[in-house]
Design a protein around this nucleic acid. Structure first.
Lengths: 244, 244
DNA sequence: ACAAAAGTGTTCGATATACACCCATGA
DNA sequence: TCATGGGTGTATATCGAACACTTTTGT
């Protein structure tokens, strides 16, 4: 590959997953070894890479996710751009750059994207790197300023979740109302009343009941539902108002 | 100044103003002349410039606004980053780059910021460039992809306006409720009922009545109000919910 | 038969909407 | 005195919050 890098520009993608119990984020192991294969340090990064000069931001984000995880066709949403002068200046990060022979010791500006996926339904293909789901609530040991990036992404996710029906992107195609409720409770961090929750959902005509029930559970099997984007697009209301 | 530019990185700031009648945006005249001083073309740009390698994004935004308008201390909020491969490729933009001897013919990624100001209370200092308020509703002839940037900024403004009490940044320190209502009606594009609007406002204890009235108007003078950030911070509620 | 989660309705208070007239001032 | 925008209250409908028991399945 002889494409030129856009010096000092990268993309970092925060890939969120939900496993019916907690919110997770996909992270890449970063291990620096010396010549004797002794580990100097080991930490975690978001899925990110530099941008090429001949690709736009969205394509770069899609390419990077695909290169690292094998995933294609995700909805990637840009949420913030990070350009602190010190974002790559911690000791581990400097060692890492040096080792790679990256001449990039200057500040790199990174455009942040996030995407949502049901981590039950999804298979990650390890393409040379070690990539794993980590519970968002207990992530530590992140490289660079990736903790900040993750926090900001989480803020956007919470906000968006309360504002638009994107929760479905974190659920499998067929889901139960209890799963949906758990998702919102987990991510937003509030408990809902089951009856009120379901009353609310039943007014959303884009959440449609299927002729299908859960199987293999040791209790009354739940009705399965799906999200209909078509119905949603046709019936979406105008934005909430600050006033009304 | 011998600071190095971060090649291929710039900031564009969308400065919104409100004059009690309509929403305006501050734009810079861009006029290209040939050697005989004949005008080749003339159009408008947002207040933007390249970023230096030794400044972070927020500082760059503040510096650029100050350099072009003399304004300091604005609340500048980052809203989106633009990186299309063709954003500087229209004929005028190419001519302009050539004329400036800017070796930058490659794509430049630009980080977008916006800020709100009451354009009544504010004085713009022309620092070598011609800078004017233009009504947002009739802006045309924008350079680069600045029309897109403006549209996106407007979207964010509308959204934020309905979600957080930022409208006050567009009003003078002392304002009447009718002015406030006009602001929301103009920007969001809906009409409100006067009594209901005022009922709503009276529940916002951070909108406080002053012991002062309008003067010099040919009708019953209106009560003046101010926005109290302290009260707001102390009593702000949690986010709206998608559900509740 | 029991454990485990599914499913279901009503009452009460709060909030949104619709709507029309008198008031204070400057000209 | 008139033109102009300022200021106010009530009735009705809608929506959110609180709350407990029966049902269906697998073991």
């Amino acid at each position: 590959m002889d494409r030129k890098l856009a010096e000092s520009l990268s993309v970092d993608c925060v890939l969120f997953g939900f496993d019916m119990e907690k919110l997770n984020v996909l992270l890449v192991d970063r291990v620096l070894k010396d010549d004797n294969d002794t580990i100097i340090f080991s930490d975690l990064t978001l899925t990110g890479y530099h941008i090429y000069k001949d690709e736009d931001l969205n394509s770069a984000a899609a390419r990077i996710v695909k290169d690292i995880t094998g995933l294609e066709g995700l909805v990637l949403e840009q949420f913030h751009t990070f350009g602190s002068l010190t974002r790559l200046q911690r000791p581990n990060d400097q060692l890492w750059s040096k080792q790679l022979g990256d001449a990039i010791s200057d500040r790199v500006v990174s455009v942040g994207y996030y995407s949502l996926l049901p981590n039950t339904d999804i298979e990650i293909i390890q393409k040379g790197r070690i990539v794993n789901w980590h519970p968002v609530s207990s992530v530590k040991n992140l490289a660079y300023d990736h903790e900040q990036i993750l926090k900001k992404a989480l803020g956007h996710l919470r906000y968006k979740l309360q504002t638009e029906p994107i929760g479905f992107e974190l659920l499998p195609d067929k889901f139960t109302l209890t799963q949906m409720q758990t998702l919102y409770e987990t991510i937003i961090g509030v408990k809902f009343d089951k009856r009120n929750f379901r009353k609310k959902i039943s007014q959303m005509n884009y959440v449609v009941a299927l002729n299908e029930k859960q199987t293999g559970v040791a209790h009354k099997p739940a009705q399965l539902f799906m999200f209909s984007r078509e119905v949603y697009e046709k019936t979406r209301k105008e934005r909430f108002s600050f006033f009304t």
